[in-house]
């Protein structure tokens, strides 16, 4: 899936959070939005997910303007910084949620949940509740929930920032492996340069709502 921002601006009241952003992302590409906090990278991601509306400009998926398409019809998966696991559901139910909403058959749901659980090595956790899991495990569940429905793109909002250093490095490697395996377009937001350098095909550096540079990691 290709993604494009064309002269996108977002204002909250009088503050311009994203300023005339233009950016094109190729199919299967892993793009990292890098920048200090408050630079507009998360807002950019949220506009792509449909959780914020752009004040002006066009957002395109596969060359189709999606500004007015509601979140649930964009078919993108998002991993939140807080993981946003549903606390009242078991891990299996959490992962199954996107499939249940799409009214897939019980058998298909079970099979696919099983498959991603194996992929992310969380089969033993399926009957637990999010509260009983460690940070790293929750992170995996959040990833599993995103992967299970095979979306058109992954959006990740600082998914590793709540993990300790050792786990972060390990998960980084795992994300790399997953990305290689799934080859799905991914937009990844972070303020961690090391993360950006190791994961990205291309890095978009943002500052004060503006795109500063968009290049391969070695050229940033």
């Amino acid at each position: 899936m290709t993604i494009a921002f064309k002269n996108v601006t977002k204002e909250f009241g009088n503050t311009r959070v994203v300023d005339d952003l233009s950016l094109e992302i190729n199919d299967g590409e892993f793009v990292v939005l890098l920048g200090p906090s408050g630079c507009g990278k998360t807002t950019t991601l949220r506009m792509l997910a449909g959780l914020e509306t752009a004040t002006s400009g066009d957002i395109l998926i596969n060359n189709e303007r999606i500004n007015d398409v509601p979140t649930q019809h964009r078919d993108v998966a998002m991993v939140f910084q807080s993981y946003a696991l549903y606390p009242h559901m078991t891990i299996a139910e959490n992962i199954a949620y996107p499939l249940r909403v799409r009214k897939l058959s019980k058998r298909t749901i079970e099979e696919r949940v099983k498959r991603v659980a194996v992929l992310l090595e969380i089969e033993s956790l399926l009957d637990r509740k999010p509260k009983q899991l460690s940070g790293g495990e929750r992170q995996r569940v959040a990833l599993a929930r995103a992967i299970v429905r095979e979306p058109r793109a992954y959006l990740m909002d600082e998914p590793l920032s709540n993990l300790d250093a050792r786990l972060r490095v390990q998960m980084r490697g795992e994300l790399k492996r997953l990305q290689h395996q799934l080859a799905t377009t991914t937009v990844y937001v972070t303020h961690d340069q090391a993360e950006a350098m190791t994961l990205a095909h291309r890095v978009a550096v943002m500052r004060k709502g503006r795109l500063q540079q968009f290049a391969m990691p070695m050229n940033v």
Partner: peptide, 23 residues
Amino acid sequence: LPRDLEEAALVDGDSRIGALWRV
């Protein structure tokens, strides 16, 4: 209630009313 949960439900493909009901 943190907004993240409903937003996650929306991104997961649920409608507003579905997210309200299920999450």
